[in-house]
Simulated assay, not measured.
Amino acid sequence: MTVANAERQVARQPRGDATRQSILEAAERVFADLGYAAARLEDVAQAVGIRRPSIVYYFPGKQQLYDQVEADIFASMHDFVLKRVEDASDPMARLLALLDAWLDFLVERPAAARIIQRLIADSAPRGDNPVRFSETALRDIEAVITMGVEVGAFRPVSAMHILNGVAGGALFYVCNGGQLGEERSYDPANPVELSAFRALLHKLAEAAVLHPGEKG
Results as ranks from 00 to 15, higher is better:
Met1Gly: 12
Thr2Ser: 14
Arg8Val: 10
Ala11Met: 13
Ala11Cys: 09
Arg12Glu: 12
Gln21Phe: 05
Ile23Cys: 03
Glu28Arg: 12
Glu28Thr: 14
Arg29Glu: 15
Phe31Asn: 00
Ala37Leu: 13
Ala38Met: 12
Ala39Leu: 10
Ala39Ser: 13
Val44Thr: 04
Ile55Ser: 01
Val56Gly: 00
Phe59Thr: 02
Asp67Val: 05
Val69Glu: 02
Glu70Leu: 10
Asp72Trp: 01
Ser76Ala: 15
Met77Phe: 09
His78Asn: 13
His78Cys: 11
Lys83Glu: 15
Asp87Cys: 07
Leu99Glu: 03
Leu99His: 02
Asp100Ser: 13
Ala101Gly: 06
Ala101Gln: 02
Phe105Cys: 02
Leu106Ser: 07
Val107Ile: 15
Arg109Gly: 03
Ile116Pro: 00
Arg118Val: 00
Arg126Thr: 13
Asn129Pro: 03
Val131Glu: 15
Arg139Thr: 10
Ala143Pro: 00
Thr146Cys: 08
Gly148Tyr: 06
Val151Phe: 07
Gly152Leu: 06
Val157Gln: 04
Ser158Asn: 14
Ala159Lys: 00
Ile162Tyr: 01
Leu163Pro: 00
Asn164Tyr: 09
Gly165Glu: 00
Val166His: 02
Gly169His: 05
Tyr173Asn: 04
Leu180Asn: 14
Tyr186Cys: 04
Asp187Gln: 07
Pro188Glu: 03
Pro191Asp: 08
Glu193Asp: 12
Leu194Met: 05
Leu194Gly: 01
Leu210Ile: 09
Leu210Pro: 04
Gly213Leu: 10
Gly213Cys: 07
